[in-house]
């Protein structure tokens, strides 16, 4: 296993653009700490974001995993190109001739994706912990370590998304087209939803079906955290509105994403196995 990871590491780390993007991604993950420094001080209006409760345990787990998941696009570029470059350089052919099996080839890519997701999760955990300890109003251990399922959801979400990227890279073979296809697919999921609701079934059923689609199911793992903020809720209450959302992470949502994840990795292997290089 370490051999397969090392093989992929040599390929990625010697590529300048991959290296820059990977570093940029992890620096961005850390930069979430910068939210702490958002401070307005205009005469009577004093606003310090960190004081608004976004860094309160356990809310911080929800907030940070949601925000940092947005940066995954940087790694998506790296992952799509690490797969499709093997085709454009024809190095996949040479790898197989040199004695890497097709299974090992997919495994080395998948392990890299697992490593990326795991590293991201650890990063978010450490950064959130530091921010929380510095700004949270509650510091009891039981509160700090509650709602940790958001971290699990974050890990599964990244893993699912990156597996999708791997699959696209192997399916389309050209990194630019694969990324284009990714965007096209995002739109397609919404179009499927719109079409189903408009012509075929009720909007409610359409929404259930939409939630089963790969990207949508990944997005549903961690719901938006903003309406949960006290400040937002009090503003809403003043306007006579009340938000009643289910913010939790559900086991069936995780299972669904794991299903897609397995599907994409297995399909990548099936495609590679069937193709003549």
């Amino acid at each position: 296993m370490t051999r397969l990871l090392q093989i992929e590491f040599i390929k990625l780390w010697n590529n300048r653009s991959s290296k820059v993007l990977i570093l940029a991604y992890f620096i961005l993950l850390t930069s979430i700490a910068l939210f702490a420094s958002i401070k307005f001080d205009i005469g009577p209006i004093k606003f310090h974001l960190a004081e608004q409760g976004i860094f309160n345990f356990p809310y911080i787990w929800h907030f940070n995993t949601f925000i940092t998941a947005l940066f995954k696009l940087f790694l998506a570029i790296v992952i799509v190109s690490m797969m499709s470059n093997e085709y454009s350089n024809k190095t996949i052919k040479q790898n197989l001739i040199d004695g890497l099996s097709k299974k090992e080839f997919i495994a080395s890519k998948f392990l890299t994706v697992v490593a990326f997701s795991l590293l991201s999760t650890i990063f978010v955990f450490v950064v959130s912990m530091i921010l929380g300890l510095a700004y949270s109003d509650f510091n009891e251990l039981s509160i700090i370590f509650s709602d940790l399922e958001f971290l699990l959801a974050f890990f599964v979400k990244l893993l699912g998304f990156f597996s999708f990227c791997l699959f696209l890279g192997i399916l389309v073979k050209r990194s630019a087209f694969a990324l284009g296809f990714l965007i096209l697919w995002m739109i397609t999921e919404q179009l499927i939803y719109g079409f189903l609701g408009w012509k075929l079934v009720s909007w409610e059923t359409a929404s259930t079906i939409k939630n089963l689609l790969p990207l949508e199911s990944m997005a549903n793992l961690i719901n938006e955290p903003f309406s949960r903020l006290k400040a937002v809720q009090s503003v809403a209450a003043q306007m006579g509105e009340r938000f009643e959302f289910d913010y939790g992470v559900h086991w069936y949502e995780i299972l669904l994403v794991i299903f897609w994840n397995t599907f994409f990795i297995y399909s990548s292997y099936a495609i590679l196995k069937k193709r003549d290089l």
Partner: peptide
Amino acid sequence: LKKVGAIIERPNFYPYMTAVQNLKLVCKIK
């Protein structure tokens, strides 16, 4: 294939890596 040495048609290596880096990768695979 780990006991075989083969080159077919065109030489395929990672263009952004040096000769030594490319060979190190092959050693890892083999």
